[in-house]
């Protein structure tokens, strides 16, 4: 982490197999557009503002390549990230069964980072539910198992996009409040807390 990067209040990273709609989601979030982009090579960077209760924050968003060939690279981008959006395509079973590959990357992220599991392309099953290959329950269960939050979205129609973004902001604010309290405690009761901190983490995760 360097000075410039620190200016961003939160580093968000998008993970998931190729073609699940990572770049499309970023475009929807940052530009409000929907199109079929070329594949991402390496990773691309963008930012978005979030209006919190008391102040405005700026979040940086790193959109990684889903291709397995760039797997080691996305670990590199995970460093210092505070929020991970892990995506799968609800019409593609493989993208769901492959998810563990991305949950394994959480070891590289910040300790207090939060994870949101996202099922994409919800619009496709509105016409014919036959196309759905991963049920809502399966998604929820996976998220539960991995201690993460869960959404099903459509970048095309914009369904649940706003809700997703607000959740990211909320969680960030809660996290930073917690950190502030912890920080104070650290300063006051240095010796005690260094011992109890580990226990606390286990409970909240």
């Amino acid at each position: 982490m360097n000075e410039e990067e620190e200016k961003y209040d939160l580093k968000i990273i998008l993970l998931g197999s190729s073609k699940v709609g990572k770049t499309t989601l970023v475009n929807r979030l940052t530009q409000g557009t929907f199109e079929n982009p070329e594949q991402t090579t390496g990773a691309t960077f963008s930012k978005k503002k979030y209006q919190g209760e008391l102040q405005e924050y700026t979040f940086s968003i790193w959109d990684t390549a889903g291709e397995e060939r760039f797997d080691s690279l996305s670990s590199f981008y995970c460093r210092n990230s505070g929020c991970e959006l892990i995506l799968y395509d609800i019409t593609d079973r493989n993208s769901f069964t492959n998810l563990d590959r991305f949950f394994d990357k959480l070891q590289y992220t910040n300790e207090d980072s939060f994870v949101i599991l996202i099922g994409t392309k919800l619009d496709l099953i509105e016409e014919t539910s036959k196309l759905r290959k991963v049920t809502l329950e399966e998604g929820k269960k996976k998220a539960n198992d991995k201690n993460s939050y869960f959404f099903e979205i459509s970048s095309k129609t914009g369904h649940n996009i706003q809700e997703l973004w607000e959740t990211v902001g909320d969680l960030f604010e809660k996290n930073s409040q917690k950190n502030e309290i912890k920080h104070r405690q650290d300063n006051n009761h240095f010796q005690i807390n260094s011992f109890t901190n580990n226990q606390k983490k286990k409970n909240c995760c």
Partner: peptide, 21 residues
Amino acid sequence: SNLGILPQFYCLSWVSLLLSQ
């Protein structure tokens, strides 16, 4: 490098895809 921009951020796709993207 003061800004914290690593070469990987930009020239990875330049090199690997012969600038075609």
